[in-house]
């Protein structure tokens, strides 16, 4: 089956990012296709490379990056939600006159149309949030 995933909550604060990751990983290992993972609301905080969790805990951000690399997974962060919360890639940092960017490896910033498209293209859109 072809799935799209939506992640609506921030890492560590809420379980939804963990659940979304476990679901996505399990689906890929079973041979299903993940069309896209879309990060919205505080979910965009899953995409900052400045995250530094304690060493004896899981690294939520790196875990997504590694999954993306292994399966060529499309991780998309909503641009409007990201800009509100200070998640920028190099282009956006330049455009907004900021002196730093913080998007983690494997993530890309794009618009809400990518969420709608993910819903249209997939057999199921699975939402993880509050």
């Amino acid at each position: 089956m072809k799935f799209s995933i939506m992640v609506n909550e921030g890492p560590y604060q809420h379980q939804s990012s963990d659940s979304a990751y476990q679901f996505t990983k399990a689906a890929l290992e079973k041979g299903h296709e993940i069309f896209r993972v879309f990060f919205y609301h505080d979910g965009v905080n899953n995409a900052t490379c400045l995250t530094v969790p304690p060493q004896d805990d899981r690294h939520v951000v790196n875990r997504w990056s590694e999954l993306s690399k292994k399966y060529n997974l499309d991780l998309v962060v909503c641009i409007a939600a990201a800009q509100r919360r200070g998640i920028l890639d190099d282009n956006e940092a330049k455009r907004q006159g900021k002196n730093a960017s913080n998007i983690a490896e494997g993530f890309r910033i794009s618009g809400l149309g990518q969420l709608i498209e993910a819903g249209i293209q997939a057999d199921r859109l699975v939402v993880f949030g509050d």
């Binding site: 409007a80 809400l112 149309g113 969420l115 709608i116 249209i120």
Partner: peptide, 9 residues
């Protein structure tokens, strides 16, 4: 915001 963007589809 999703509703407004989604309307274009």
């Amino acid at each position: 915001e999703v509703v407004l963007i989604g309307a274009a589809f």
